[in-house]
């Protein structure tokens, strides 16, 4: 009896940090913004339950357009990242051997250990009107005057794709690693062309990695703040910026909380959809990464 009570106490003590962490830093804060998002100001310092914040989102074009734009561009960025990363991952996993392989993977990892702000600073120095590319174009005579490559959608997409690459390459390379060379060989022996083998054997095998990579890249992109704001300037228009503006600049917390819930919903919906369409589970997907 005493032993049983003692083991119960041990279990409770072991669980206490997890309960405090998940309760105080995750669950209750989310309950708080959910409640906050349904409160409306009816008089100064007086709030009541209502759907006003969500209605405001649908009636104010700036808000829902920014939301739709963020969702659409994030999907585009994810697709571009996948296409760019696939040949690299295939090379690392299937072609490169020994030290070259280790080195290529390490070189991929290095830039991503460095802060996002540093990487964005690099792109700003390259792309801006007085920057390196503009200067190079002028000195070889391809441009007569300074070229502004910053503050447009192209720059935002470039920065976001750059930021997502690693998170695509690693799960892809992991998934491709386990593909048996004999299976690929058999595909060729049976008369398959390069394209057929890629489409019918390699890509289906890499599917868990593709799903994991796409989900992670999408989540990181949709939730990004610094890259679209710094590389897009006034044209950045990212939804996280709206959340920041409501919370910090305009001090309209209920509105900001509603935006936060919408972003969380978007992010979760796409993750769920991705898993559902491909029949994967979240646990195995996170393990891939």
């Amino acid at each position: 009896m005493i032993a049983k009570q003692a083991s119960r106490l041990t279990l409770f003590l072991l669980l206490a940090p997890a309960i405090l962490w998940l309760g105080l830093l995750i669950v209750l804060p989310h309950v708080e913004i959910l409640v906050l998002s349904f409160s409306e100001r009816v008089a100064p310092r007086v709030y009541a339950f209502g759907f006003g914040n969500y209605l405001e989102f649908f009636t104010e074009p700036l808000y829902w357009r920014t939301f739709a734009r963020t969702a659409f561009m994030s999907i585009l960025v994810t697709a571009l990242t996948l296409v760019l990363a696939f040949p690299i991952a295939l090379y690392i996993a299937r072609v490169a051997q020994g030290r070259l392989k280790a080195m290529l993977l390490l070189l991929c990892l290095l830039p991503f250990w460095v802060s996002e702000l540093v990487r964005t600073l690099g792109w700003m120095i390259l792309l801006r009107e007085t920057g390196v590319i503009s200067y190079a174009l002028r000195s070889i005579g391809l441009a007569g005057q300074p070229v502004e490559l910053l503050y447009n959608d192209g720059a935002v997409i470039l920065g976001l794709v750059y930021g997502g690459l690693l998170f695509m390459i690693v799960p892809l390379a992991n998934a491709l690693e386990s593909l048996e060379p004999a299976v690929v060989e058999a595909g060729y022996d049976l008369g398959g062309s390069r394209w057929t083998v890629l489409r019918r054997i390699v890509i289906p095998h890499a599917m868990p990695g593709i799903v994991a990579g796409c989900i992670i890249v999408f989540m990181l992109t949709v939730g990004n703040f610094a890259t679209p704001v710094l590389l897009g300037g006034k044209n950045g228009l990212w939804f996280t910026e709206q959340i920041y503006a409501q919370f910090i600049t305009r001090f309209n917390w209920p509105q900001g909380a509603a935006f936060g819930m919408l972003l969380l919903l978007l992010s979760s919906a796409i993750v769920w959809l991705g898993l559902r369409l491909t029949g994967q589970s979240l646990g195995t997907t996170l393990k891939q990464a």
Partner: peptide
């Protein structure tokens, strides 16, 4: 499962929820 959950919440949302709750 709950322990994995924080990884799928956007960082900005994590920030505002903790800000509002505290």
């Amino acid at each position: 499962m709950m322990m994995l959950w924080p990884l799928v919440i956007p960082g900005v949302v994590l920030g505002i929820s903790i800000l509002a709750f505290f």
